[in-house]
């Protein structure tokens, strides 16, 4: 009987090695381990054995049964995995074919650059103010120390609505509006549209955007102005950018400065872009003129402040290498999709 068991074991192992698919495997199981299978038949004949032999043969039979079952399971797993491989091989795709996209839109490049600038100043504790584009002459000029007949009015070709109302030529009137409405400490930027009667060409537009900045507090110094704007410029253009403050004149700041940054093309060596100077004019700034503070009811003996203004289009043109201002308002999708 023991021999018979060993023969079954050998037969099963031989058959398993030959088995090519799940059907063959099932046949083997039924033939040997099924209810009417050979091993089952052997076990059924156990009753004929002696009392001593029975437990020995019984243990052997169980052991063989369990081993054969394991062997069948293992074979089954092997066959299954081979099948899976075949199936996956049939499912191959060309990964270089295009993806199925849901087409998204995008923000205008000016909004994107504006957002960068806003984020930088918000990080420095600035709020964002907005104001009217149709503005009183008083806010646009007079409160900013530019009375009627002031020569500085010549340089800003103004669109008039009537004698007292203009399309704002600058975002600077927001300085006055903010100071009238808020008590120091003030840290604010005011982005917005401004208007000048310039005909449209590659570098001029009657409508463009500025960002005004204003800080008013006790003890604000020109050194603070330099530090704040240097930080901003480094955020915007990178830490390698050199910054130069140069005396200038604006009626509503004193001292006033223009800020130049090292040329992006030549890095300061001098090239056609910077007209050989190595520097590119980038923004105007200064300490808020005491008369302007007084116009807003702020005592210049107690408070001081600084203000600055920059042109959004110019920054965006530089950032993206755009050479024609008109592209911004043409809104050709082939242009808009690039940002």
């Amino acid at each position: 009987m023991k021999q018979k068991l060993e023969e079954i074991r050998a037969a099963v192992q031989g058959a398993l090695a030959e088995a090519k698919d799940m059907d063959a495997l099932e046949q083997i199981r039924i033939k040997y381990l099924g209810k009417k299978g050979e091993l089952t038949a052997v076990l059924k004949g156990m009753g004929k054995l002696s009392k001593e032999e029975r437990p020995v043969i019984g243990a052997l039979a169980n052991e063989i049964r369990s081993k054969l079952e394991n062997a069948i399971d293992t074979k089954k797993a092997q066959l299954e995995s081979a099948l899976e491989e075949l199936r996956l091989a049939a499912e191959v795709v060309d990964v270089t074919m295009p993806g199925k996209k849901k087409e998204l839109g995008g923000l205008h490049p000016l909004t994107q650059v504006m957002n960068t600038i806003k984020d930088t100043f918000i990080g420095m504790g600035f709020e964002i103010a907005e104001g009217p584009e149709v503005e009183l002459d008083y806010y646009n000029f007079e409160a900013l120390n530019i009375p009627k007949n002031h020569p500085a009015r010549d340089t800003q070709d103004t669109f008039y609505i009537d004698d007292d109302v203009v399309l704002r030529t600058q975002t600077s009137p927001m300085q006055i509006r903010v100071m009238e409405q808020t008590k120091p400490p003030i840290r604010v930027i005011a982005p917005g549209r401004v208007y000048r009667s310039d005909s449209v060409d590659a570098t001029h537009s009657p409508v463009f955007h500025q960002i005004e900045g204003l800080v008013v507090d006790k003890g604000v110094t020109m050194a603070d102005l330099k530090g704040t704007l240097e930080t901003f410029i480094h955020e915007l253009y990178g830490n390698d950018t050199k910054v130069r403050f140069r005396p200038h004149h604006f009626p509503f700041t004193e001292p006033s400065a223009e800020v130049d940054v090292s040329c992006f093309v030549c890095g300061g060596e001098g090239c056609s872009v910077c007209k050989g100077e190595g520097w590119i004019e980038s923004l105007g700034c200064g300490m808020v003129h005491p008369k302007v503070l007084e116009n807003c009811g702020i005592d210049p003996e107690v408070y001081s402040g600084f203000a600055f203004g920059l042109g959004l289009e110019r920054i965006a043109m530089r950032k993206y290498d755009i050479n024609d201002l008109r592209l911004f308002t043409e809104n050709d999708l082939r242009f808009l999709k690039q940002f």
């Binding site: 918000i122 006790k218 140069r246």
Partner: peptide
Amino acid sequence: YDKIPTTLLSGEATCGGKT
């Protein structure tokens, strides 16, 4: 102007942000 130091704003902190 280049000899004026560069300092960061001191004074009362403002939290800033958008409306």
